Amino acid sequence: MDLTNPLVYGVPCFIALILLELTYSKSHDDHEDLYVWKDLMASGAMGIGSAILGPLVKVTVLIVVFNYTYELFNPMVDGVRMNIMGYESFGYAWYVFLACQLADDFTYYWFHRANHEIRLLWAAHIVHHSSDHFNLGTAIRNGWFTLLYKPFFYMWLPAVGFPVEVVIFALAIESFWQFQLHSKYVPKMGWIEKIFNTHTMHQVHHSQNVEYLDKNHGGFLNIFDKIFGTWKELDDDTEVKFGVIHAPKSYNPMVILTHEFKDIWNDMKKSPKLSHKLMYIFGPPGWSHDGSTLTVKQQQRLFKKQRAANPEMVYSRPN
């Protein structure tokens, strides 16, 4: 199986769909401002960088590290590949692909959630959320630094016996699904929303409205969000405000890539205590030693109190 084929075939589709949505939006008054040229160019630069760096990471990490992990935990014994836990390693049956896809989605949920709850990882992931626009162009605005650590979240899959090719195929399916979620043109989808992560759910994820923060981390399923308490449905009466509170306010790709790392460094200098410095790096985004900024959970607790006092209140993250 060619490990690169899924995404090689996907890139032309991504470009074609972005151009199609762009063309459609410019001819319809209700979404004529869906794309802003400078914003799209910035997203495109992020996507091109990922396309260049991606194959390098695939060779050095995905193939080398995944293969090493697979060989280490699934040695050959009398001509049969056996997992060190005592069972025969998985093959290429259709149900193995399905099981790996489910395991991939479980892993993606925790990888994605960690990107929102650990500030150092958020500094890499904020790139994807930095646009004030929600469109297919935003889907390719991905941080380059996430390529360096994402594979390590998935190493357990070859370790338990899934063939490397099957794992990489599951990662490709995950990428395709995540890309197409970034469209405002797909309405709520009825019963499908009971199982799958859909476009309106992903709008919630990209919102900076307080009640929507850190919700809907799932890949193509929403079951793990529901199990672990991070699922939120889009309220038709709430105006969604896309983007992040600490936006880079720049279309320069280097600024977009690095601005949160710079903010972490500046925050670390606010306190001489080592424990405070470590929290600014590894604590949740918004944590502060003096309460000058709030974490998402703190903001949401405050929001609940304020809404209880004023049920008609509509609140979004301030700029």
Rank of each mutant, 00 (worst) to 15 (best):
S130N: 15
N5W: 10
L7I: 15
S131A: 13
V64D: 08
F179K: 07
A172P: 04
S250E: 12
A172W: 00
F152H: 05
H259T: 09
M189T: 00
Q203I: 12
H182M: 11
T4D: 14
H205Q: 06
W265V: 11
E233W: 00
A170F: 07
Y95G: 02
Y251S: 09
F162A: 06
K184W: 03
L3M: 04
A247S: 15
Q180W: 03
D2V: 03
M76R: 14
K58E: 15
H133Q: 14
L20K: 07
M41A: 14
V11F: 05
F242A: 08
H276S: 09
G47Y: 09
L181G: 01
Q208T: 13
G86K: 13
I63A: 11
T69Y: 03
L221F: 02
D2R: 06
Y315K: 11
R81A: 12
R307I: 12
G161D: 05
G161M: 06
W37V: 13
F176P: 07
M85F: 09
I192N: 05
E312K: 04
V164L: 03
Q178G: 02
K26F: 15
L274G: 02
G91I: 07
G44E: 14
L147V: 07
F97D: 12
L136H: 12
G79D: 13
Y315S: 11
G190C: 02
W144V: 11
F228S: 01
V8Q: 13
C100T: 07
V167I: 12
T293M: 09
I84W: 13
T295N: 07
H133P: 09
P6E: 09
W122A: 01
K277Y: 11
V11S: 04
K304S: 06
P75Q: 06
T258V: 08
M254L: 14
L7F: 14
L157M: 05
K26C: 14
N142A: 06
G286F: 03
K277Q: 14
W122F: 10
K150I: 04
F106I: 15
K215T: 06
I48W: 15
G137F: 10
K249E: 07
A51W: 10
F66P: 03
A103N: 00
L7E: 14
T198D: 10
A159F: 02
G283N: 00
F162L: 02
P253H: 09
V314K: 12
V240Q: 01
N310C: 08
S271M: 04
Q180V: 06
S250Q: 09
W177I: 13
E233R: 02
E71M: 10
Y68S: 13
W156K: 01
H129K: 01
T238A: 05
A139K: 02
I195Q: 07
W231G: 00
D2L: 02
M313D: 12
V204T: 08
K277H: 08
G219M: 06
Y212F: 12
F153E: 10
V186Q: 00
I84E: 12
A309N: 11
L181R: 04
S27E: 06
S27M: 04
H276K: 05
H28C: 10
H259I: 10
H289G: 00
S50Q: 15
V186T: 01
L274W: 04
H133Y: 14
D225L: 05
H259S: 09
D78W: 01
A247Y: 03
L213V: 06
L56K: 14
W231M: 11
D225V: 04
Q299L: 15
I48E: 13
L62I: 13
M313T: 11
L3Y: 08
F224A: 05
A93Y: 14
K270F: 01
K226Y: 11
